[in-house]
Design a protein around this nucleic acid. Structure first.
Lengths: 342, 342
DNA sequence: CTGTTAGCGCCTTCAT
DNA sequence: ATGAAGGCGCTAACAG
């Protein structure tokens, strides 16, 4: 409405203002503020004081224009809504924030057109690099090799092996999950997991199977694929129990599935973890902590993935490019739903 | 390592390059590309083609430098981890994205020092404005009136009434929640809610109480404050039933609490919604959809809050400033856990 | 040690 | 209709 007339109206101070107030040239002021050595201490003092008094902040746009680098990266998510993007985003933001790099956030909402649009916009802003965050671990189309800046793919790897991708190691995750159950003395381990269209589901099952085989154990039936919901966890468990299949552990493809599994086990009078150990995937706090008992789960270390992507991108911007798919290890977070057989 | 020699190495084309290729001056090229009218159609054509061929994208940094505006806003969250920031962020990103404005994301992680640091960094990048997203609806300290750009507070309002804040209307939310239960013919409505240190909890209770009073009904005891967990929902419900308190509906302060409430109701042989209607808050998909039956819940319309904040900020940048706390209405999302008494 | 000059990429007068 | 020139804020050469 009425333009405020207070201090908030005034334009931000420029180096010119500072120089004038300090009674020196802009060049000297620049050197003084940037710690260049060819400035008399007393002069520098004057400049610094002037800058302070005007609350001078160097204009990064001007700097970027000159340097040819903006000190900015684009973070392009395909699905902010899903819960996997956020931790990755946090890890990346954290890693960049420490290094004076700012993050431009764009959400493509799963739309390729919108993604392309965002890429153009980001390049127009002269981002120094790009991180592309997918919503599932299945490979996705590359943005292409023609981009003027380096790109790192996180969570969803690029289909082009010339690109660098960072993904959680889901095969290994299946392995260490089973490893934990074995360490608890369990031998009749069923695997109830999610949608087989997801690579993550298949890879975890593969790793779990391998770990069982290496231990000389038979899996309790084939992995049971379904969807990622509590409902499927309940249904699959009911089926298992109805058929009198003997089990002392259930490895679940998600924490939601695990919730469903535990509910039915309890309803049928089986105790967790005394009779059956239950383990989830994703380590989603709201579910793992609220379960009865609290749910042991595999954490994909997504913040770590984000941080690793940030570091890889920084390296690439610095000229050290890598390529191919690199994995980040997952970890088991032990809670009350798994325990050694007594 | 080895600097790639492909097309990705070349510097992005400048207007100069385009002009040279088209055989005109930079001034003409600029006019041609920006739709200025004083250019012969045939010339414009040549310029556009040249630009295309070089995949020219105007450097926004240079533009911003000249214009004095960067076309960029800062989004400062205090807690990306919590689930409330994300929808707000999505709404804001969406609203800005449509308007050629890019969003710089910073997460203060609940740390005032870090927040201050981020504000400085953002101002250095000459953001045209700032949105500050809080993690709860309790008022928070203002960033101050001295900032050179407009600021809009979302979710957590500023303590300074001179600032503009956009928050969900939690009093009204309590009202419409009770309104829905009344419409279902319920009259014995208990309220089990979260931590009374949260303004949201107190405001919802206040609104709920007012709606009951207006309907000439007594609340079933005082609102039961606790924390926001499933565990508290279970405990509070058990207490209620142990005391033989007669109820036909429970309004819960969060979906998690509602989960706990429903579990105990079912365990005690009460049917939802036939015997007792249950209603949650937050409309958190993963909980509401997975409940048995699916949970009716109040949605705070957070995307809407984010969008409104974005629009308000755009207006402020355009010179139209508002101030004070403005509210966004919540809405009831009806699912299976509430139904008319038959 | 300090100041002058030039230019990053773009847009906008002002001449032509 | 086109081009030449100036300047946005800053830094890196070079001069003094």
């Amino acid at each position: 409405m009425t333009p405020a007339l207070g201090p908030s109206r005034s334009q931000p101070a420029t180096l010119n203002d500072v120089a004038r107030l300090a009674g020196v040239s802009v060049a000297t002021a620049s050197k003084a503020l940037n710690g260049r050595s060819q400035v008399r201490a007393e002069t520098r003092q004057r400049v610094v004081e002037a800058a302070e008094r005007l609350s001078f902040r160097p204009n990064q746009l001007a700097r970027g224009l000159l340097a040819g680098r903006s000190g900015t990266v684009g973070l392009l998510t395909s699905d902010l809504e899903g819960r996997f993007s956020i931790p990755i985003l946090m890890g990346a933001e954290d890693a960049f924030g420490a290094g004076e790099v700012a993050v431009l956030l764009c959400d493509a909402r799963g739309d390729a057109i919108r993604e392309q649009h965002h890429v153009r916009a980001l390049l127009g802003r002269r981002v120094d690099g790009l991180i592309v965050v997918g919503s599932r671990t299945d490979p996705r189309p590359s943005l292409g090799r023609e981009l003027p800046v380096p790109v790192v793919y996180a969570y969803a790897p690029s289909e082009d092996p010339a690109d660098l991708s960072l993904v959680p190691d889901n095969v290994d995750a299946g392995r260490i999950a089973v490893g934990h159950l074995l360490a608890c003395g369990r031998t009749r381990i069923a695997h109830i997991t999610g949608d087989p269209a997801y690579l993550a589901a298949r890879e975890r099952a593969q790793g779990a199977g391998a770990a069982l085989a290496e231990a000389g154990l038979e899996p309790v039936g084939e992995p049971r694929f379904g969807d990622w919901s509590e409902g499927w966890g309940r249904a699959a468990t009911a089926l298992l129990l109805d058929r009198r299949v003997e089990i002392d552990a259930v490895l679940c493809g998600s924490d939601q599935i695990a919730r469903g599994v535990m509910d039915v086990l309890r309803e049928r009078g089986l105790r967790v973890p005394e009779d059956v150990a239950v383990m989830g995937f994703d380590n989603w706090q709201v579910l793992t902590a609220a379960s009865r008992p609290p749910l042991t789960s595999v954490d994909m270390n997504l913040e770590q993935v984000g941080r690793a992507a940030a570091h890889a991108l920084s390296a690439a911007i610095g000229g050290v490019r890598r390529s191919g798919v690199e994995t980040v290890r997952c970890r088991v977070v032990i809670r009350g739903s798994t325990a050694p057989l007594s």
